[in-house]
Amino acid sequence: MASPDTRSNAVPLAMAGAAGILMPLQALITSNAALYLGGYLAAALFSSITSLACLLVASLAIPAARAGWKRFGAVWRERTIPRWYILAGVIGAYYMLAQALSVGNIGLALFAVAVVGARTISSILIDVIGFSPAGKQPITRRRIIGAAILVIGAVIAAWDPITHSGQSPAAVISLAIAVVAGLLVSFQQSMNGRAGQAYGSTTTATGLNYLASSAGLIVAMSIAGLLHIEPFGYSAIPAWWMYFAGPLGILFVVTGVTLVPKLGSLVLGIGLVTGQLLGSLILDLILSPEKVSGNEIAGTLVTLLAVFIASWQPNGRPRWKAQKAS
């Protein structure tokens, strides 16, 4: 029997939106870092290693994180969660690489809309099959309408970049890379959420995510260097502003690990991508206000409407109250 819980979903949804707002800044930093460091893989690896270093320091300082690392061995031996969940870090590596590859060719707005549309579809699938720690979530008419409005708002926001990029082969490839990143990132968050529950530590789950991410990127960089696709290593010393990409990535992963058990994949995704579009709009207003169109502003407002609809209850009040099985 389900009983009302006094905890509110308004705060975690707001936290998801806040984390989403910072995602475009991470994408912008990673994309520009590729020009300085000698390639896309180098930029993604630098972001991943920076994140890993921060998390290792946190693991030493936080008692729960130290306990989580000790519990990792038992979880691995007993297969409390499938061992292939470690691949969540590889998905994270791909997402960082997709940022570096795509933003320079299609821009922040179009990268955002590609990720938004794809992750909305995969989030619905995850909630239907019960892959996230929240278990199976009802895909009600209200949630479907909210997701559809969110995608429409994202397309409106990026309509001008879409029409201008359609004839460029590099833009088409970058768009496909971004779509795949959006499809995979919901699965990554669900895997990390289950891992966080198994280890009893968000820090441990996030640290393992970046450990696998860094390892995957080193292998990819080695292969690219051997094939003369991209040089191995860095061509320049990282600038101070490049160090911020790592902590921003940590915030994104930690948000997923912490909130997906409470909100489910679809509602978490709606909060994150709404923040992502708001962040893209804010960055555009700061960096190039002359390029901000009415479409971008209107599309962002439509996505805010989608969040409200997805959280609405049939009794006419927002679904701010969570429920749990008693």
Rank of each mutant, 00 (worst) to 15 (best):
G271A: 07
G269M: 11
V307H: 00
L251N: 09
I282D: 05
L226M: 15
G275E: 05
R319K: 13
G316F: 04
W320G: 08
G256C: 10
L251A: 13
P247K: 10
S280L: 04
L266P: 05
E296G: 08
T303P: 00
E296H: 13
G233Y: 06
T258K: 13
V257D: 02
K321V: 13
L248T: 02
L263Y: 02
Q276M: 06
K262Y: 10
P318L: 12
S280F: 06
T300V: 11
I229V: 13
N295G: 09
T300K: 00
A239I: 13
R319V: 09
N295P: 01
G269T: 12
F244L: 15
L285A: 14
G246I: 05
V254N: 00
T303Q: 01
L283K: 05
L277M: 15
A310M: 10
G299R: 07
G225F: 08
S235Y: 05
G271Q: 03
M242Y: 05
P247L: 10
P289I: 02
I282H: 00
P289L: 01
T300I: 02
L281E: 04
P231W: 04
I297D: 03
S311E: 14
A245F: 03
S235F: 05
L278G: 08
V254D: 04
V257C: 09
V307N: 00
P314F: 06
S265E: 04
S265V: 01
P261C: 02
T274A: 13
P247V: 10
I309H: 01
Y234D: 05
S311A: 13
S288C: 09
